[in-house]
Structures are given as C-alpha cells and as structure tokens.
Write a protein that binds this DNA or RNA. Structure first.
Lengths: 330, 330
DNA sequence: TTGTAAGCGTTATCAC
DNA sequence: GTGATAACGCTTACAA
C-alpha cells in the first residue's frame, strides 16, 4: 500500500487498532484519509461474513407513527454502526414479502417487521435463515413472534371501558381498513369485547371502516349520526375512532352538524398527534412512544446480534389522555 | 451444486436467463427455492463492482415532508431493484457528513441529500468518488449542485407579494430555525426581498424564529401582536409562517386573543398539511408534491447510474392555495 | 449451452 | 507487531 505496509496491517489498523503499533496506525490512517480511501464494505462483509445491515419493513412512511418508529430505530442502530435498510409495503403482503426477500439477499442480519399479518412464508424464510427478527407496533402475549409494541386489543378495550364507565351504552366506531392489518383488527376486537362484557354490542350502522383521513372521519360521523334511526335513542352517544385524524374529522363534523361535544356526543382518538390537544374541546386519546418502540426493537435485535439472549421486551402501555371531548352522556 | 450444474450456470440462470437452457434454468430456480438459497449480494457486489444501493440523507423523518420524499424515492428506486439506505442528520452537519461517509463505505452508487447547507467536505468526498448525487427539496438556479426541488426564496417571495398586493404593509414572520438550514434561510430572504422591492422591511419585534410546532406558533403570534407597540398601527396586519403547523398555532392563538382572521389579521402557512383546509377559516398556504420530488430525484439518479446524462430536473413550482385566512387589511 | 478458472477487496490464520 | 496467503461467494471472460 501507499503507506508502505501490507493490506493485513491496514485492515488491523482499522479494525483492531490495539494490535498495531501506534506509529504505524497513525501513518495508515493518515494516508488513507489523504487518498480518500475507505474500506470496501462489501468485500469486508464477504470476508467477515457479517454485513452490519439491519432491515425494517413498515406499511408506509406517510403515517407519522411508523416514521417515528423508523427514526428511533435508525438512531439506535447507528450507535452500533449498523445501517438500516427500509422497505415500505403499502399494506400489501406480497410487497412486504418481496422486501423481506430482497433484504435477506442483501444480507441483513436482523429484521424488524411491523405487525404480524403477513404471508407465512415471510416468517418461514426468515426463520430458515436464522435471522433474528421482531414484530413491531403490536403485542400479543400469545404471539409466536417476539414483539415490541403494545397490545392493541387491550388498549381499545380500555378506552371502551372508560366510555362505558362514563355511562355510555350506544357506541359508534370509525376505523382504518381492517383487511390485512392485525393492529386494527385487534382494536376492533378490543372494543367488541369490552362491550360484550356489559352485554352490549356494536350496531352495524354505527361502524365505519375506511382510509384514515380527516375527510373520512367527517363523512363517517355524519353517516353514523344521521343514519336511518328508528328512534333517536339508538344514535350513539360516543364514537371511538381508530386514530386521531379520524377523530378530528369526527369532531369537526359534529360541530358542523350542531352537535355539542362532549354534551351530545363523546369522541375519542388514538396516537395523541400534536393537533389533538389543540382542538376545541381537546381530544381524549391514547399516547404511545413510537420512537421508543423503534429504539427498543433495535436494542433487542442488537443484543441478539451480539450473541446474547435478550429478555423479551415488556409490552408498552399507552397512556389514556383524558381531555374535553369525553363526558358522561346527557 | 445440488442442481448438478456449475456455479457459473447458477449465476447465469439468475442474471442472464436467456443465456441458459430453459430446462436447466427451471431446474436451477427450483432447487434454489427448495433450498431457500439466495445469491449473496455482498459477494455479487464485490465481483460485479456494483452494489445496487442508493443512499438518502435527510434531517429527520419527523417532518412529513421528508417522510413523503423518502417514500417516493424508495418506490422509484424499488422498481429498479435499488435499495435505499437512509440516514437522518437531525439538522447536524457533522452527523450528515458521517452518514455520507458511512454510506460511501457501504458502496452506495448514488446519493440524495436534502439541502445544500452542508460541510464542504461532504460534497468533496462524494465528488472524489465520482458518485452521482442530487440536492433535494431546494432549488437555486445558480447552485453548483444538481437540484430536485423548488426555489424556496421564490416561493416566499411570491407569498409575500401576494400579501402586499392585498394591501398589507406591516408583515410579521414566524419561521423554523435558520441556522444550518438553507431552505429556511432562502425563505426569509424571499420575504425580505419582496418587502424591499416596495420599500418595506421586517421590524425586529415582528420576527420570531424557533422550532416548528403549534406551540411555538401560538407563543410567537402572541409575542408579535402584544409586543411593545408605540402605536397600534405598527402591529402587523399579516403574518407569514414558515410552515403550516406554525400557522395553525398562530391561527389558534389569534382566535384566543380575540383577533378576527382574516379581518384583523391575515395568516399564511406552507406545505398544505391536511389540517390546513380544515381550520376555520381555511389556511392560505402553498403546496409542494414531496413524494414527487423524491421520485424525480430517484429517476434522475437512476438515469445517471444507467450511464445516461439526464437533463436537469426543472424546478418544481409550489401552488399557492388561497383560503380564508387571508384578505385585504381592514 | 455449459464448465473452468481468475479475479473482486477484504479478513483471518499462520508464520516470522 | 507485521507480512504472506488462503478463504469468502459470486461474476465473467474464455474454453470446450
């Protein structure tokens, strides 16, 4: 090499600084930076059998909860010089599977996958390669996978019970598309379960499922509150929304319809986006630290990469944030 | 190999399907999938001298504009089997530089970098390696770098002129931190320039700079509108905000202060987040297709990777969306 | 059409 | 403490 040493020494200078004479080391590093030289990672990966690459598969970055999760994961991995490969499935199982395959091919040493509603081959392929992985954002005690997240069913069960305890009996529900989304499925199940425990249920006309947007929240609230009601008593006195944007839409539409919140109608959201606290009245919602879920997932995987057997990550517990949008029914 | 063929044939079966007998090809693919075998990307990269990896460096995923950009970029790259390495600098030049170095080491073949306010070494290192790159989200006609984005100065110049044409003469400004952020710097410059063209300027007490949050928007508006005013006439009749969240905060605070928008005060934002249209009154703002910026950047880079000389991407032009938050001053 | 064999740029194992 | 040298798992002339 230009520094007058063998390639072996260069390699050591970079990877095992203590195994090389300080003076030589300095010279190597100096010429390297003078030449703008950099170890070729692919060659290193091949020789070492390690790539220092991890992968994350999420539905989409459009959703701030996943963006936050990836941000947290990325920082945590960066502290150990692990780079993050990102794949967005757009809520498509096949696309998620393709991303997983591509990542495995690129030699990812660990994989974080949002949710567990995936093609079985996905987990099989990962297992076949012995690559450590976690399912993020969701948590089920009896899941076959290691999870880092919270129990969606339990969270919505809690929110529903909160409304029931306030005295509500007729409850509406506006959620994101359930198909292929185990988190939403669990949320709906949580609501139904809590209702069933009090001998109640969800009326078909009081449930709406569609894209999570303010617009769909508005439209859904109007449909629910002005549907063919045999008697006004069957109109819900509370509406649970799958996330804050749906809830904000519902809140705005309630105002537009002349319904007083929370007097005529209670509304709840999920995520505690910045806007939730700013609404009039403030939105009752639940908060999860998504960046933390990302960094916990990364830490877990890093530990496994280091050969350790990390203890399972305990489920995160969302905070129920009570604001002005909920109250006992009139 | 297990399929009874040489490694060369396996390689061809995967990379040059037409160069191998269909029957053999089928057998190879079949045994490969049966064994769960997959070409080792690092080895391939080493032998071929190509990694099929691109990198993107952005400040943070917390900001939906960057998240959207990365989403668009990722999809566009995915269509050509290029995977995206992501790095977040948290608005720190050193961190951005470190990410760039790490990515170059990983063998990225193209780089997209948000903004041009970076350490000069960053661009030098990239140039030294001959890696194609683009600066995203910002555009300046006389920039030394290839840009994919819009002219931030021009956009805010336009917005300011719009307010001036409505008849405003005293204008306030609430923006994100300028330090190390060329996009924001350009926006402020655009405002000052438009004012200067009419012989006007920004009063010190009417300018606020801080984190882009609803909270800072509120706090800033209150400070601006209740500052030590020698005479009420010097209070601004319009406030330009660096993004929609600041503007939404300003709008909410104006309402809280009993100021009528737009009668007493006009307010403008930037980005057209979903909430902007839902405010009362709707927020006048500007919209940019961020996902498109991402995919345009990826397409440009892909073209360069293919050996082509893509024509420079024309600057995107934000739409000025006029809503109820602006009107002539009283 | 298929096989042989020489790299690709590191790391790791030996000697020295 | 340092230098040869054999892997690592592929791609790609070149031969057959």
């Amino acid at each position: 090499m230009a520094a007058g040493v063998s390639t072996a020494t260069v390699s050591r200078a970079f990877n095992n600084p203590e195994k090389v004479a300080p003076e030589v080391r300095a010279r190597v590093l100096a010429t390297a930076s003078a030449l703008g030289w950099m170890p070729h990672a692919a060659a290193g990966a091949l020789a070492r059998g390690r790539t220092n690459i991890a992968g994350a598969i999420i539905p989409t970055l459009d959703n701030e909860i996943f963006a936050a999760q990836i941000g947290g994961m990325q920082s945590a991995f960066a502290t150990r010089a692990v780079t993050l490969l990102l794949g967005c499935s757009n809520y498509d199982r096949d696309e998620a599977f393709r991303h997983a395959q591509a990542m495995l091919g690129k030699g990812v040493e660990a994989l974080a996958i949002a949710g567990e509603a995936h093609r079985p081959e996905l987990f099989e392929t990962i297992a076949a390669r012995g690559v450590p992985y976690v399912v993020t954002y969701s948590y089920r005690a009896d899941s076959p996978h290691p999870c880092v997240g919270f129990d969606n069913r339990e969270a919505f069960h809690r929110m529903t019970r909160y409304l029931l305890d306030l005295g509500h009996r007729e409850i509406g529900l506006i959620v994101q598309p359930v198909a292929g989304n185990d988190r939403i499925e669990a949320r709906v199940a949580g609501v139904r379960e809590a209702l069933a425990e009090r001998g109640l249920g969800l009326r078909a006309g009081h449930v709406r499922e569609g894209e999570w947007s303010i617009g769909f929240g508005r439209e859904s609230l109007r449909a629910i509150m002005s549907g063919p009601a045999p008697r006004p008593a069957s109109r819900p006195t509370a509406v649970i929304c799958g996330n804050d944007w749906l809830a904000i839409g519902a809140l705005l539409e309630a105002r537009a319809m002349g319904l007083a919140v929370p007097t005529d109608l209670s509304i709840t959201g999920f995520d505690d986006v910045a806007m939730a606290a700013q609404m009039e009245p403030g939105l009752t919602t639940m908060r999860v630290d998504n960046a933390r879920i990302g960094s916990l997932a990364a830490d877990y995987l890093l530990e496994r990469l280091g050969g350790g057997t990390p203890s399972p990550v305990p489920p995160q517990v969302p905070d129920l944030i009570e604001r002005g949008s909920t109250a006992p029914p009139r």
